[in-house]
Write a protein that binds this DNA or RNA. Structure first.
Lengths: 247, 247
DNA sequence: AAGTGGTCTAGACCACTAC
DNA sequence: TAGTGGTCTAGACCACTTA
């Protein structure tokens, strides 16, 4: 193979070559990639080795296999792994999809903090917008979101408002950016004026703050999101740290 | 093989047989299991198939491989995956091991809620104890812990106090119980009288509440823990939802 | 040097999906 | 029926650890 990246082993080389192809949008979100046999020939490895590379990409949630159908570039929402990124559930455990509405949208310069998290230069231009999320008809969560203008050229309030699906799906379809992972930090914060109105709680009510950075391939930062959650009736589901299937 | 559990495929059967051997304490925490060659012969499968079973057990954090040395039953603390279970870090990202001190210990009947989480019958006898955790010399977190008496026969305050290592390591060494996964729910709570004294904050100060159930093999509940964290200078690190290694 | 896990091969057969 | 991924084999050679 062309060894686009030097990896210690054959299958890592194959994995990196496939990540490169994904970054170059040779295969786009939702599309099927070539069959294992064809890819094995293309990269000059046996099917077993090719499978090991794909195994890791599947473990990373970058690809999805469907027996008898093919292997596909992960798509958000449609793949029902929506709740991997949306972790707020009712305290009785009930999971529902949130109703999202856009509260504000503007262009701005990144604060030092946001720039650092986005990995851009300080003062880079960013789009910032605020979403209100409701569950069971009740506003539960306010998201403050920032993305780099350079990565989302031509993003408009109208496009955001009219997106047919989830935000990460919109990033994928309209900007060919695949969110494949996130990192989150949680702490307690309090409701400011705007939030107390939207959430219908008194000013200063303690809220759960979730600071998230979303990443694409190669851990490249895509989006920064600071969420404030009213946990009176809802809560955040943390990591499960085990994948053992029930018998 | 003896098919102790019916699994659709050979490697799942092998995996279940190995889980059974682990539950039966044939291989104990920290010990090496037999070599791949020997295990392949024992279960009557090829090495490749045996490896696939072990692959999953490693992915579940139940086994750990060391090239040239062997495959071992996961040990807490010693394996440095301590921070998989301890998720509180300073807001600047600094990670340190907590200093733990036992505040109280007693036998009691489980509340309905605790019994449900522990999977015991209502009113089952439990041990409940409280730990105070300090980071950088500052008390940051109070843990309220409950375990079933039936699973921890003869547990005493002295044994707890004198344990040489982490709690989960103590469970492993003294009761042969391996914690392999957790589930956590987070919300905002407030400091009660006892907590406000220990954490040196005013009564009613909002705290981050983490409700955790720890599981052993086959998702069997082992321990329930309700933690209250002062997030003024510390925070909770959430799931990362991606395992892609940096290049 | 001997023993371990890590990688890799070149197939085989099965189960599922679409036509 | 043809094409796909899912499982499985029976080896080979390499890299690492211990002695």
């Amino acid at each position: 193979m062309g060894t686009p990246t030097i990896g210690g082993t054959r299958y890592k080389e194959v994995k990196n070559a496939m990540l490169a192809a994904l970054s170059a949008q040779e295969w786009k979100g939702g599309e099927a990639i070539p069959s294992e046999k064809r890819l094995a020939e293309r990269f000059g490895v046996s099917i077993g080795t090719l499978r090991k590379a794909i195994d890791e990409l599947v473990a990373d949630n970058i690809l999805v296999r469907h027996q008898g159908l093919g292997t596909f570039v992960s798509q958000h929402q449609r793949d029902r792994h929506f709740f991997r990124f949306f972790r707020i559930v009712r305290q009785d455990g009930d999971k529902t999809y949130p109703t999202v509405s856009l509260v504000s949208f503007r262009k701005a310069k990144a604060t030092r903090e946001i720039a650092a998290m986005l990995g851009t230069e300080p003062n880079a231009r960013v789009f910032t917008f605020v979403n209100r999320l409701a569950l069971h008809g009740e506003t539960v969560m306010i998201d403050n979101i920032a993305v780099a203008e350079a990565r989302f050229p031509g993003l408009t309030e109208a496009a955001l408002r009219e997106r047919p699906s989830t935000l990460y799906n919109f990033y994928q379809d309209s900007f060919h950016i695949n969110v494949v992972g996130t990192e989150e930090r949680l702490r307690v914060a309090t409701a400011d004026d705007a939030e107390s109105k939207l959430l219908e709680v008194p000013h200063g009510t303690p809220l759960l703050e979730v600071r998230r950075v979303a990443y694409s391939y190669h851990h490249a930062p895509v989006e920064v999101r600071i969420s404030h959650v009213n946990t009176a009736r809802y809560e955040y589901v943390g990591p499960s740290a085990s994948h053992e299937e029930p018998l």
